[in-house]
Design a protein around this nucleic acid. Structure first.
Lengths: 337, 337
DNA sequence: GTGAAAGCGCTAACAT
DNA sequence: ATGTTAGCGCTTTCAC
């Protein structure tokens, strides 16, 4: 069933059918009615490949994710997908492993699929202008920005929270609650990632409060997953790590750490407080509910697509949005007297 | 940059370039080398739309999901995406809300995108042959089957666990632990969904053990989410619901219910045991770790794609796979003396 | 308001 | 081994 069949069946030319298909005004009501009728009754759907070919572009937007199973990304993906579909585009998703380069993958997808735009969900913080040359369509960095790179604000778009400041607030919250021996659960202090940024917030908060930094309180997990956090924290506790509170750079890592703490007889929050950043749903249902700074996942996804569509459809250029976080007080932080 | 440019630049015809592109043997080593060189240095990537158009089909496989943020689906999606990419195809994902019909959406996608096949992740259990007429490409039902429908085994494919039997095992485990007043946390006893199937397992286990069914022990949440389970369980506990154990049809719902139990002073497992089905990662990190029957998510995703590609590439026809579950003993079930 | 015809970039006979 | 050519299904001038 092609446009030709519809034309034949409704007794008009291909052109007229095309006009109806594209909601052009220059078709008589009568022709339109007939064509629509035939389309309807034959369940005809135009071939996207053919349309894309002639228009030399598709209606697809690519989503490149570092790990779809990261529960933090999950809500964003949902919002992204909804917004893309609502905007009349289609989403093509690819995930990449931690050692792959998201830009190379994105560039590949872009050319192959003739993408109109890209969302990068999680990625490196150190793109250079040369990296960008790979991409020929608008893109939005979602949940990260170019803090360690050399891009100017005009060269790319981003939607994220203020990572360093948020981490600072979290640690500040612990300090205000009377804690001074505060461990940081991060992936690595200088991997130019979100972890480094949040670690910097931790350092700033301690420094400002006149609390000396201690290497033994910086727990590096290498990975972002729950199991890695559990193992790293277990190891530290086995070695007798001593602190009254933990700042975890993600809810997921906090949850892994909390199990390690419990298994080592450290009740939460009585013998160790925990605070994190992200605000995934489940962390509000665990015991005790995790005190955390919530990112507006839904909004991050939605805004990213809004910005991307604005660029694709020529309404505006690159832009950067820093979304606010909200402190969700659970029961994982104890005030020391 | 099109195939024509490459042909010109390497001094051969477009056919030869096409041959190189498609790794055909009938090209001289010399020509191949030259073409490859030009392709490489110009960063040329063939236009997929054009290829799809002439081949009258794409390289895309559609994934239709009921709620991407369901943590149980998340691992499956990851496996599905990896397998699709590894098989040389591309994944196009769409999620649908609970009131939309997945088959209609799938059919829409299929025609528009000229999909080669479809994975339905979560869906109705009551398809009829008429429903199937909508779809013209192979598809695999992932995590569900046609238990309440009228399809024959030859008409569709599925990869799932034995839901009723698994639920039976879970409840049986509670009974063997000495429980007799066992609540069931389900969405609805007769919605022809996975909930109904698992509820049937619950009924069978009780009946077999000579335990009378009690309406007041069947807690319906309508939704599958954590919050809905929390609210429903809270309501029941407010009304003084009395039971020594809860069988939840999903880990997620169990986690919601556990918070409600705690908030009502019911410690787990001392004053109430909890068992569930799914085995998502986080449920092994909560306190107490949830005792649950784990589905092999990774394998479900992988096998679904294997089966789908086998059908797409004509290696075999429809087939059904029932994957085993594994009991993961946490600390949420207490043995009554 | 409508249609004929060119062409988007590619593959696949078919010929050489 | 290589090139010529006819479409794939659609949109878009351009004429009428």
């Amino acid at each position: 069933m092609t446009i030709k069949d519809i034309a034949r069946l409704s007794g008009v030319s291909i052109t007229t059918v095309s006009r109806v298909l594209n909601e052009r005004p220059d078709v008589s009501a009568e022709s339109r009615r007939r064509v629509l009728e035939v389309i309807e009754s034959n369940n005809y759907i135009p071939n996207n490949s053919a349309r894309d070919l002639v228009k030399t572009k598709s209606d697809a937007i690519g989503l490149v994710v570092r790990g779809v199973s990261n529960p933090f990304y999950t809500d964003i993906i949902r919002a992204v997908e909804s917004s893309i579909t609502a905007g009349g585009y289609a989403m093509v998703m690819q995930q990449i492993s931690s050692n792959e380069d998201e830009l190379k993958r994105a560039a590949m997808m872009e050319r192959e699929k003739r993408l109109r735009g890209l969302i990068l969900l999680g990625g490196r913080f150190d793109y250079t202008p040369a990296d960008l040359a790979l991409l020929n369509v608008p893109f939005v960095c979602c949940s990260f920005a170019n803090h360690y790179g050399t891009l100017t604000e005009e060269e790319y778009s981003s939607v994220a929270i203020a990572d360093k400041e948020t981490a600072y607030q979290a640690v500040r919250y612990l300090i205000n609650s009377g804690h001074r021996r505060i461990a940081a659960l991060i992936t690595c202090p200088d991997d130019r990632s979100i972890s480094q940024l949040r670690y910097e917030g931790y350092v700033q908060a301690l420094t400002e409060a006149g609390i000396p930094l201690e290497d033994s309180l910086v727990i590096c997990t290498e990975t972002y997953n729950i199991q890695g956090a559990y193992q790293s924290m277990s190891r530290v506790l086995d070695d007798g790590g001593s602190f009254t509170a933990v700042f975890a750079i993600s809810d997921n890592m906090a949850i892994g750490a909390m199990r390690a703490l419990r298994e080592h007889g450290r009740t939460i929050p009585e013998s160790c407080s925990v605070i994190a950043i992200d605000g995934i749903e489940v962390s509000d249902y665990i015991d005790p509910p995790l005190t955390t700074l919530c990112q507006p996942m839904e909004e991050m996804g939605r805004r990213s697509i809004q910005i991307l569509l604005d660029m694709i459809e020529g309404r505006s250029g690159n832009c950067h949005e820093v979304l606010p976080t909200v402190l969700r007080i659970g029961g994982s932080v104890k005030t020391l007297v």
